[in-house]
Each structure stands twice: as structure tokens, then as C-alpha cells.
Design a binder for these strands. Sequence first.
DNA 1: TTTCATGCAAATGATTTGCATAGTC
DNA 2: GACTATGCAAATCATTTGCATGAAA
Lengths: 137, 137
Amino acid sequence: MSCNKILKQTGHRLTPQRRLILDLIHDAHTHVGAEEIFDYVQARAPGVNKSTIYRTLKLLEQMGCVFKSEHDDRIIYHHAEEGHHHHLICRSCGKSYECEEALFSPVQRAIEEKYGFWVEFRHMVLSGLCSECRGRK
Amino acid sequence: MSCNKILKQTGHRLTPQRRLILDLIHDAHTHVGAEEIFDYVQARAPGVNKSTIYRTLKLLEQMGCVFKSEHDDRIIYHHAEEGHHHHLICRSCGKSYECEEALFSPVQRAIEEKYGFWVEFRHMVLSGLCSECRGRK
DNA sequence: TTTCATGCAAATGATTTGCATAGTC
DNA sequence: GACTATGCAAATCATTTGCATGAAA
């Protein structure tokens, strides 16, 4: 279900500010921080306040429309799409890639077998080296 | 190599404050936050300032003696031991378990094959349900 | 006795909140 | 028109910093 619908169904309103924030998070191919979201929104709707950004992000996170994570001492957000996935961020060039979630099923099972613990792998942000940066090294 | 040695070898001093912080992080079976570390240190050495805690934690992190992570909007620290491992935190009871690092080798290889990306799985903090809480449910 | 580390207090930066007003449903 | 969302400004919270003093090596 789309975020717009979720908002309406939960009695929230679809304001231009919220639309912009959703647009950015949805279209962004990389993860974005509060500051970047603010700049983006500010650019098309001058006057929007930073507290609105934070309030909206918190709301969207609660609705499950958006995921919040932490990487490299930065808080970042990304859209919670149907097909969940993880994020691979290259620590050398900074580029970000998506990683299919299914690849983690074997570990999930292995951990379950060994510890009885059921890990909920959701929207992980993983650090490492992308193919280009590994070759260049 | 022990943290004490690392400190000395890099020209840093082994003060009572640092000793206490190292003790706690080393002995703690759970991860600890700055506030808890402060309380612990404060209890045995009243007068120690919070900025000392933060400065020490940053130093230890830089030396690679300590790992900093984020879980549930909290910044937590844990000791970086020889045999690295991951952390499983139950979102129901809050208990924390250690998870052998080797279990992730298959995913690491799978991701490498599929995307050419080499993930550095280090001291991950994973959320989920422990065996007890799953049974109880 | 030379540095490095600490305590203190003030600064910072990100995020949150109260309240009156404006906008959506 | 009712009720939620916003802008603004002030508050909060964690973390950082400058500086004079104190303690390791």
C-alpha cells in the first residue's frame, strides 16, 4: 500500500510538505539524512521548517513507510518498499547498492539452528568495498 | 594485544579513569551506553567527569579497542575481542547473545558473487527474538 | 619536568516541544 | 467548521571543546 493511502487511512493529512518528503525518499537512489531532506524540501518550498521535517520523518517511520538507520555516525532514511532489501555502502567511494534480502535466509536459518534466535534482518546498512574500489586497490 | 599495551605503545597514558572504563567494557556481558559507563565509573571514582568518559571512548574506538554501534536509538559500546562476533538482542526481553562470526561467511561469499561487493561484517548488532521469547509467544 | 589527561564550564549540533496560526478534509 | 499540521522560538539532550590545573612517564 502506498504511503499516501496509509497516511489517509490512519487519519493523517497529505500536505505539500509531506508530499515532498515522500517524493525525495521514494526517488532517492541513495539514503538521505534529515539535513539533505530539509535542503531538498526547502528548495522547492521555501519556508518549510526543520521541525516539520523531523515530525514527518518520525511519523513516516511509525507508519512503517520509511526506515531509519545509522551509518558512519550519520542517521539516514530510506523508503520501505514492498520487496525489502539491504544496503551496501562502499567505504571507499561512498556509493550505495541494494542487496537482495533473500541472500540472508541461510544465515538466518543457521543462527536459528545454533542459538534458537530468530534474527529479523531488516533494511540493514552494510559497509565494505564495492567491486570497482576493490580492483583499484 | 591488550588495550593497555596498545595505549602505551601509542604514547597514551594509563590513568585510573581509563582503567575503569576498560574494566567495565571488558567485563560487561551486555553492551553499555555512555551513561551507564559514567555511572559505573562515578560509583568507584566519584568526581570523574563525563567529558572524560566521552574522550576515552573516542580514543579507545580509534585504537580499535572498542566498538561503537547503534541499537534502538541508543549508542552502545562493546569490547573488541580477538575472536570477533556479532550481537543478537532480543526485542522482547532485551537480553543479548553473542553470535559466531563465521556463520556469516556464506552470505559474504554470496554477496561477493552476486554484486562483487565485499561486505565487512563487523560487530553487528542484530535484532530479533530469542528462543525463550519465541516459545512464550 | 615534560607532556598528556582531566575537570569544569561553556559551546555545539541535532532533535524535540509548546503554542498560536494556517491548511486539509 | 473541526481538527490536524505547520512555523517559530525556545527547550532539551547528547556530545564536544577551550583552557587552566593535575598526574603519568
